[in-house]
Design a protein around this nucleic acid. Sequence first.
DNA 1: CTTGAAAGTTCTCATTTCGTTCTCTATGAT
DNA 2: ATCATAGAGAACGAAATGAGAACTTTCAAG
Lengths: 200, 200
Amino acid sequence: MLTLKQQEVLEFIKKFLKKHNYAPTVMELADGIGVKSKGVVHRYLQALNDQEYIELIPNRHRNIRLVEPPEGTSSMIPLLGKIAAGQPIEAIPNQEELDVSAVFLGADRYALRVQGDSMIDDGIFDGDYVICRHSHTANNGDIVVALVDQEQATLKRFHHNHDQTVTLTPANARFSPMVYESRRVIIQGIFVGLIRVDHH
Amino acid sequence: MLTLKQQEVLEFIKKFLKKHNYAPTVMELADGIGVKSKGVVHRYLQALNDQEYIELIPNRHRNIRLVEPPEGTSSMIPLLGKIAAGQPIEAIPNQEELDVSAVFLGADRYALRVQGDSMIDDGIFDGDYVICRHSHTANNGDIVVALVDQEQATLKRFHHNHDQTVTLTPANARFSPMVYESRRVIIQGIFVGLIRVDHH
DNA sequence: CTTGAAAGTTCTCATTTCGTTCTCTATGAT
DNA sequence: ATCATAGAGAACGAAATGAGAACTTTCAAG
């Protein structure tokens, strides 16, 4: 836990950083909090460093780094609550956050723009972006990006049968499930999420 | 990390480049930052080069190139193409990218977890996260987060009538549109997008 | 093509600034 | 009394900065 003085030092660092875009020297810090000795300030810095509020790069000038990254760098969206939960949203003091990047960003992730209505019953609409994970195998029930006869890439629910065939099922009552020999179907990815942007 | 002087040098280079469309010589740089020795300036250039803020082409006059700062912490997902487009995905040499943060990250954005099926026909499913923009007004046809009688926050399509009433329309055939006096309905946000995470 | 000024590069030396460590002192709480 | 917190200041070494000489390479004028 921080002592009062330590908090004061931390506050000053933040303010200084915001103002100048570089860290203060120990002496500037000493001036800022009304202390005459560098040694004293350095003791505070050590404490803050030990508690990981800041990071000190040894023997460098203006060597203070804030550990908590300044807001805006992250992909966090405040998660205010559940809708239809019976409470006014703005009254909910909820600290939860939704991390966009954790779910969708990764070396093996890619996006595809959806065209057509074949998965409409699964809530995947024309114009949506589906986020997929690269994979050439899938489990039964997965929604996959499948390539049939090297020709047509489609989004379908996948089911592997016992007779060397697979069934690709659209989520739309107007279309029927299709059965193919396994060798004709190549899995190109597995559905992991969906992003929709309202263009209203 | 850059020292103060290094920042100053970098700034001067940028300004010079903007003004003249070509890089300064070492001596012009020295003048610009008030230093008399070429050697000193060159040391700064080396430092900036090492830290990849600039690129120095060896033994050329006016040999400083600015290195484009690395893409923002990158909320970019490669956008490989359109699904059901008739081509194998991996064969599409597409450079497009989908920027997650641009759409969803902003001071006035927040997320809500959807509970229930009232918007199912608009492809908004139970468990989805809807991204909203804070707003107390809406246009006809917007999907809004609406609070009725300070009690129930729901997601509905909004329509403002001419007789001091509003109509909130669920996107589900099993539910009917509701009409309320305007004063009973408070808009808390406007739907701007949707995120779904597959928990399969 | 030659050539010389201009420009980039590599050094060494000196000075200043700054982080770091240390000791000594003081005060208040348990 | 002991310990945690707080301050002053000295001393040291490393980092940052500066000046300038010496060298090589580039580039354009003649």
